[in-house]
Computed example of a mutant assay.
Amino acid sequence: MTGDREYPHATTGTGRLITALAWALLLLGLWLWGREITGLPDRTDTPATGDVWAAGAADPALLPRAVAPIGDAVPQRIDIPRLGVQAPVVARGLDAQGAVDPPPFDQPGVVGWYGAGPKPGAQGPALLVGHVDTETRPAVFYKLSTLTPGATVRVVRSDGKVAEFTVDDIRVLPRTAFDAHQAYGPHRPGRAELRLITCGGSFDRVSRSYTANVVVNAYLTGITK
């Protein structure tokens, strides 16, 4: 994007091959997760906030410049001021089917981080997942689809630093044509990116799942202590 810095890093041919294979396996698991995370317990309501709208990509000239990625540190909390979200972050892995295991339904205020992937603030897309609702009430990412480009997302890390991200892209991706690379792959090589993901679309009573996923992309624009 215009105005964003590039952060080149040296890789050998073997390193590139290993990275490509690792991404292929990761995207396979994440594609499965993109299909399965939308499953919910028995319920009768149908809409999910932001089910048919997405802001899409912003004009890069109107957004702040990216800053260089920082070292690895585990995320502890996520703050989204525009949504009034302040939530703990816990590491999650893959389930028996190879899909990313989201936070349990009895923890609707918790955000899951895919712990085998990049850490927020480090190079690459860090994946944070949360439920849109439960059987009885909204969950942590209920209003995620109402974000617009330019919104701020802060992640408090275990090293005491706060990684500040700026939203530049919001999508609602249907399950019927789910594009794992578009959803989970890096949007700009060399950047530190953040991917916030929840259920979207309408609730299908037959399959007992939502029909889409809301995917918000943000990139690192500041670091504070």
Rank of each mutant, 00 (worst) to 15 (best):
M1I: 11
D4K: 10
R5I: 10
P8K: 04
A10N: 01
T11Q: 10
T12E: 04
T19A: 14
L21F: 11
L21N: 00
A22Q: 04
L25G: 02
E36V: 00
E36L: 09
G39E: 12
G39I: 14
L40C: 13
P41G: 15
T44Y: 12
T44M: 10
T46N: 02
V52N: 15
A57K: 15
D59V: 15
L62Q: 13
L63P: 05
P64Y: 10
V67R: 06
P69L: 12
P69D: 09
I70F: 07
G71T: 07
G71K: 10
V74Y: 09
V74N: 06
P75S: 08
I80L: 09
P81F: 14
R82G: 00
L83P: 08
P88F: 15
P88A: 15
V90G: 06
V90M: 15
G93W: 09
G93T: 14
A99I: 05
D101K: 14
P102E: 05
P103C: 06
P103S: 13
P104R: 14
P108R: 01
V110N: 07
W113S: 00
P120N: 11
G121T: 03
P125W: 00
L128P: 00
H131A: 10
D133P: 11
D133C: 08
A139V: 05
V140I: 15
F141S: 06
T146G: 08
P149H: 04
A163G: 05
F165L: 03
V172P: 02
L173K: 03
A177T: 01
F178Q: 00
H181W: 13
H181C: 00
P186K: 03
R188D: 01
R188E: 12
L196R: 10
S202L: 09
V206I: 14
V206H: 09
S207N: 14
S209T: 15
A212H: 15
N217W: 07
L220D: 01
L220V: 02
I223W: 06
K225W: 07
